[in-house]
Each structure stands twice: as structure tokens, then as C-alpha cells.
């Protein structure tokens, strides 16, 4: 049986206490929320924090405030299954409900949290392996080694962002609050991520992601999330396409935001497609096709997830078109 390594556990009841503990312990500590990402990584010895700072006793992290009329704030410990089954979220930010519902499996969605999914460790088939397997390849840059086996000449790690909710929250223009012993800051979700498989979060080690802020949706706002994976459950996205848009009645795009998961170390911004779409009619199949092509262009898969790289590239076109069609009423 796979066992966790030994660790020390702290269970602060207040966010400030948690932040203080992290400030104290530095990189030797990890926060533990739902555990569905961290604990498997610990069992495979990819992460071996000496101390776990459990967040589950901190009530503030479960709080929820606001409403669709004014925008909503979800505590970081909001479970994915709560989001999946929330009628207000489904009505106003449908892409978020769709993304939450597509994560892993029902029990994992009952455990996994929104904050945890946003901070999900980047994934790579050379990294998400047991210690002897990783020893057999001489390890990799992300843990204990020197080389990135995805691109051995590369100076950086190419592990892949595999969160379903991050591209959606980017597309929705949501923000997160980060709390540390020094205080708190609020940043766009988009800015939470960095283009590096190892340092994939701009969140500092002493910071705790405490809340997600959803903007109030405009009446003409639409959003969708389309996920490509092998099976109907369990699997991480090999491509996730999140799109939000404001559409005029005639299908003209007022404004759009499109982000991808599974194609790089951070959610990929399909900015060119967005620029192309502005002012054009999504009901025009040629427009839709060209935009899909543009989205597929920035989906640059690497050979470190399920499915072949070239097929994922080809499938991206089809799935992008599907996502764009979903935006139409």
C-alpha cells in the first residue's frame, strides 16, 4: 500500500494564524485543503513538506458572499461539488459549473476545493510517477533532477496546467485574494499563473489563496467550458477550452475572453482569436471556423499528457469550434 511520508500537522482556526505559520515555516510547509492533489503527490514523494497547515478549521475560507446581481465571492474551501450543484452559479457563470462538474470524479469533487483546483500542481507524465520510476529516468527538473524530458534542451520545465476551473475563471475575469502575514492582495486570476512548470503560481510560499471573486455578469454574457479527455470521468483535461462572451442579438461579438487548459504551464490566453472575433458575427460559420483555427494555433500541446501531441493539436480545432458554438444561444 502507498503510504504518506511522515509530516507534522498544524490546524489553525484563523486565517491569520495560518499565514503566520507559513511565514514561520517557509517552503518547508504546505497548506492542505481537500488533499486530492497534495496527498497523492506526497505518496509519490513528489512533494514532501515537513509540515502541513490544514485549512479545514478556518471557517472564513468557506464563507460565501454577494449574489449574481452584484458579483459573488466564494471562499477558497468551497468544494467543487457545491459549485457543480449551485443553481445561481449555473445560471450566471455556467462555464464554472460545467468546469467544476467535469473535474475527476464525484468523491474527488466532494473533497476537492475551488482554491485547491486553482493551485493544482502542474502535471507531466515524467513527474506524476512513483519514486523508483522517477529514479529510473534520472528524475526531472521539476523534482530532484536537471533535465526536462519533454524538451531536453530546454532551460525550463514544461509541466502542464491541468486545472479545469482556472481557464474558466480567467475567461470570466474573476479575481482571487491572497493572504499572507504581510497582508492581503487581490489580483486577476489570470495573474495568478506564471509560464513555468515549476514556478507555475505567482502566489508566494507564504500566501494563502483565500477567496475567488466572480464579477457580476451582464445580461448578454455567455460562457462555456469544453473539455477533451479520454473518458467520461477521472481524467484531467488534455485540452480545456473556456470561453466567455457578450453577444448582441444578431450574434455579433461585443467582447470575448478565451483561455485554454492543458496546453502550457499556465492557462493559455487565446488573445488573437478574441481580437479577431470582436465585432464579428459568431453565427457566421466562416468566422467561427477561423476563430477556432486561431484558438487551435495557440494550443501547443506537448508530449507529456494522454493522447498524442499531433492529434491533440488537430482535435483542438474541433473542440474550439464546439466551444464557440456553445456560446450561441
Amino acid at each position: 500500500m502507498m503510504r504518506l511520508p511522515r509530516f507534522r500537522y498544524l490546524a489553525p482556526r484563523k486565517l491569520s494564524e495560518a499565514a503566520a505559520a507559513l511565514a514561520d515555516l517557509g517552503t518547508q510547509a504546505s497548506v492542505l485543503a481537500g488533499g486530492t492533489d497534495l496527498l497523492p503527490n506526497m505518496k509519490r514523494r513528489q512533494q514532501t513538506p515537513a509540515t502541513l497547515v490544514g485549512l479545514r478549521e478556518i471557517r472564513a475560507l468557506r464563507a460565501r458572499s454577494g449574489d449574481p446581481g452584484s458579483g459573488m465571492t466564494l471562499g477558497a474551501l468551497t468544494r467543487l461539488s457545491e459549485i457543480e450543484h449551485d443553481s445561481a452559479i449555473a445560471a450566471n457563470w455556467p462555464a464554472l459549473a460545467q468546469a467544476a462538474a467535469s473535474v475527476a470524479t464525484p468523491p474527488l469533487r466532494n473533497m476537492g476545493t475551488l482554491g485547491g483546483n486553482l493551485c493544482l500542481d502542474t502535471r507531466c507524465s515524467y513527474y506524476d510517477q512513483g519514486p523508483e520510476w522517477r529514479a529510473a529516468i534520472g528524475y526531472c527538473m521539476k523534482k530532484d533532477g536537471e533535465i526536462c524530458w519533454v524538451a531536453p534542451g530546454s532551460p525550463r520545465c514544461w509541466a502542464v496546467t491541468s486545472t479545469d476551473t482556472a481557464p474558466v475563471l480567467c475567461a470570466l475575469g474573476a479575481e482571487v485574494t491572497l493572504v499572507s502575514a504581510q497582508g492581503e492582495r487581490r489580483i486577476p486570476v489570470e495573474d495568478l499563473f506564471a509560464d513555468d512548470g515549476i514556478e507555475h503560481l505567482t502566489k508566494k510560499p507564504g500566501e494563502i489563496l483565500s477567496a475567488v471573486h466572480l464579477q457580476k455578469p451582464t445580461p448578454d454574457a455567455r460562457s462555456t467550458y469544453v473539455k477533451l479527455r479520454r473518458r467520461g470521468s477521472f481524467d484531467f483535461p488534455v485540452l480545456g477550452i473556456a470561453a466567455s462572451a457578450r453577444l448582441r442579438a444578431d450574434g455579433t461579438v461585443e467582447e470575448a475572453r478565451i483561455f485554454l487548459s492543458g496546453t502550457g504551464s499556465r492557462p493559455t490566453n487565446a488573445a488573437e482569436a478574441v481580437a479577431f472575433l470582436a465585432g464579428r458575427k459568431l453565427t457566421d460559420e466562416d468566422v467561427l471556423r477561423e476563430a477556432a483555427e486561431s484558438i487551435a494555433h495557440v494550443a501547443r500541446p506537448l508530449q507529456n499528457t494522454d493522447f498524442s501531441m499531433s492529434w491533440r493539436k488537430q482535435a483542438a480545432r474541433e473542440f474550439a469550434a464546439r466551444a464557440l458554438r456553445n456560446l450561441l444561444p
Partner: peptide, 11 residues
Amino acid sequence: PSMLEYKSLAT
């Protein structure tokens, strides 16, 4: 060598 990445049909 994992249940997740060795794909077998789920429900």
C-alpha cells in the same frame, strides 16, 4: 503504471 493513466472504461 497508474490507474489514472492506464485507461480503463468507467461507468
